[in-house]
Amino acid sequence: MALTVIAIIRLRNLYAVVMLASIFSLMAAAIFVILDAVDVAFTEAAVGAGISTVLGLGTIALTTSEEKKPTRLKLFPLLVVLITGGALIYGTLDLAKYGDPNAPAHKHVAPTYLKEAPEKTGIPNVVTSVLASYRGYDTLGEVTVIFTAGVGVILLLGNWRFIGRRREDNDV
């Protein structure tokens, strides 16, 4: 996974970059399966590795497939990234250990969901029952965001000039 990311940084052929991003998503999906998040894994495989790649390839077809050569070596971004990374690593030192069953994240509402969800909603898959029932409003918000993004894409890429011209023709 790290190798894929480094290749994404180094390569200038955008077609290769988009395909590597797809492979990266697929590996992330495999990691999600290992971490018990099966629902997340198949969403990532379908959306991250599938739809994002199609969108990226479409954009390359409409624009350009080669990044220009870098004019100079950029030390400042590297410095910023290293400092931020160091700060984040320092921040992780206080976090709960990987897989710790006593971590605060597992002590709040999650046990309630695991205990009640099958009886209250009748669905054995807790992720589904939380998504659609307990946190249905989150999903409503998600649908709103997708709708807004869809409207934005249509406004940006729709052929409005053509429609305007046709209307002028009708007026004449």
């Binding site: 971490l35 018990d36 998040a37 629902d39 997340v40 969403t43 990532e44 959306v47 991250g48 739809i51 994002s52 969108l55 990226g56 479409g58 954009t59 994240a105 597992h106 509402v109 999650a110 969901y113 695991l114 807790v126 992720v127 939380v130 998504l131 946190r135 989150d138 999903t139 998600e142 965001v145 997708i146 993004a149 869809g150 934005g152 894409v153 940006l156 890429l157």
Partner: peptide, 25 residues
């Protein structure tokens, strides 16, 4: 495993692809 982060990330992945589509447009 804790189901709550799975739900949040399920939402985030789909929102992420929507914003990616807008950015590419």
């Amino acid at each position: 495993s804790n189901p709550l982060p799975h739900v949040l990330i399920l939402t985030a992945i789909v929102v992420g692809v929507a914003t990616t589509a807008l950015g590419l447009a």
